[in-house]
Design a protein around this nucleic acid. Structure first.
Length: 445
RNA sequence: GCGGCUGUAGCUCAACUGGUUAGAGCACUCGCCUGUCACGCGAGAGGUUACCGGUUCAAGUCCGGCCAGCCGCGCCA
């Protein structure tokens, strides 16, 4: 008998079907056993009746997470037993059960709150929890919405390398590969330089790139391995055109998440992101700092960046005053940003750069880039970098590079803020940090 | 790296100012249960209180050390 996916059962009332999946919950009433079956598409209640001896040779033994194949009839539930949830008005009348795989007792409480280290210690199992499935279904939608929107606007997706020849960008700490055919290589901290090179062939490019940061940071917003959703576009006049595209991408992502995952948002207890009717509010760093001083009495003006607490404050204020969970901060000090960041001639000392804050956290960073070869070389020299070491990259600029700009969004950060996850690590299916790669590094074994 | 907090059953947590045999819920085992949906009821099993040392008649509780985790800061995105 062909398998029916649980999401398709609604249309098969009265029919005999075969369903395969996991036992999500078991409620044993003696001569009546309720099972909640789960497959990749959803859940459904199955009812095993004690009158059926064949079924009752198996049903009482079933436990959480056993894999089973159940044959039965799709029935409407009795009027009073209907629930306002997916498949809440149907159930499966069990006629036979075959056990595909047994499961031991789970080492944690399935639907209760877990400490985050328990969650990580048992990831292959905790990922099966509804909460976790909700998080990563939303994340998959974020990724797809990012890709779909940019591709529809003629951005070409390319694959940025992960193995790179140098810790090119500086700033972020790179993981070193000691033996790359006898030489030293690094794991990419960003796809930035390759993304700029790709403006040459395609003008508009995007990539969803794995990047790696070796900072010794133990916080709720850092990971050692992150997914960056990046794009770069040619022939811009300044950073504002990049911000405009980014805003459209963010609106598209938010809309898609709201459309597809209203149930998950409810289960996770999170409100849909607040989008302003007009444009995302945007302030220069200095303006933002003045607002923080005025509204929160914090000293901020003159600092090179917003402190985490200031990011939270300006977002709180923007939500109240502008009805937006998104806030752009522009014009960071030139010396605080990467070497390729375009200075703003109208604001000496400041650059055509921006961060996008979302619900209190920086989720994106971008800028117009320097496209003039001589200017780029001069800036590098000024910063004590050796242009010779970047000759590979600089070829693109020597041979006709248009004015361009782009940005990069941290997938885990936007997911975490979208769903109000306290720790960004919960937004990574297999998080890597200072003390974990699959196992705790400190665990004795 | 610095600081704060935490570590008790498989999980989530109790145990007042140190005081009898360290408890509960869930999970697990056994029994009962035909409409549950956090099913219910009864019984049972499950502990070197992270680890090492100290103070005390007496330590889960106080002190020192050590390990681990979380949170914040720094740094970063």
């Amino acid at each position: 008998m062909d398998r029916t996916h649980i999401k398709d059962l609604t249309g098969k009332i009265g029919q005999k079907v075969s369903v395969s999946g996991w036992v999500d919950v078991r409620r044993n009433h003696g001569k009546l056993i309720f099972l909640v079956l789960r497959d990749g598409s959803g859940t459904v209640q199955a009812v095993a009746n004690g009158k059926d001896e064949g079924v009752f040779q198996v049903a009482p033994d079933l436990r959480t997470e056993w894999c089973v194949e159940v044959v039965g009839e799709v029935k409407e539930r009795p009027e009073k037993m209907r629930k306002d949830e997916f498949n809440g008005s149907i159930e499966l009348g069990v006629e036979s059960i075959s056990v595909l795989s047994k499961a031991k007792e789970l080492p944690f409480e399935k639907d209760a709150d877990l400490n985050i280290d328990t969650h990580f210690d048992y990831l292959p199992l905790t990922l099966r929890r509804e909460r976790t499935r909700d998080i990563f279904r939303v994340q998959a939608t974020i990724l797809q919405a990012f890709r779909d929107s940019l591709v529809s606007w003629d951005f070409v997706e390319f694959q940025a390398p992960v193995l790179v020849g140098g810790d090119a960008e500086g700033g972020a700490a790179a993981f070193k590969i000691d033996d790359y055919y006898g030489k030293t290589a690094f794991l990419a901290t960003s796809g930035q330089l390759y993304k700029q090179i790709m403006v040459g062939p395609f003008e508009r490019v995007m990539t969803i790139a794995k990047t790696f940061r070796g900072e010794k940071s133990a916080t709720t917003r850092h990971l050692s391995e992150i997914t960056q959703m990046e794009f770069e576009m040619g022939f811009v006049h300044d950073h504002r055109e990049v911000m405009s595209v980014l805003e459209d991408v963010m609106r598209h992502i938010a809309t898609r998440v709201i459309e597809k995952h209203s149930g998950a948002l409810v289960r996770l207890g999170v409100a849909a992101p607040l989008l302003p009717a007009v444009k995302f509010p945007a302030f220069t760093l200095t303006e933002a700092q003045e607002i923080i001083e005025r509204e929160f009495g914090e000293k901020a003006v003159g600092e090179l960046d917003l402190e985490p607490e200031h990011e939270r404050q300006i977002c709180e204020w923007a939500r109240k005053e502008h009805g937006s969970d998104f806030v752009f901060i522009t014009h960071f000090p030139t010396r605080k940003r990467a070497f390729y960041t375009h200075p703003d001639p109208a604001m000496p000392g400041f650059s055509r750069s921006f961060d996008l804050l979302f619900k209190g956290l920086e989720i994106n960073s971008g800028a117009q880039r320097i496209h003039d070869y001589d200017e780029l070389v001069a800036v590098m020299t000024e910063r004590g970098m050796d242009p010779e070491k970047f000759s590979f990259y600089l070829q693109a600029f020597k041979y006709g590079m248009p004015p361009h700009g782009g940005c990069s969004t941290g997938l885990e950060r936007i997911t975490a803020r979208m769903l109000n996850l306290a720790n960004v690590k919960e937004a990574s299916s297999f998080p890597r940090d200072m003390t974990r790669i699959d196992n705790r590094l400190t665990k004795e074994e």
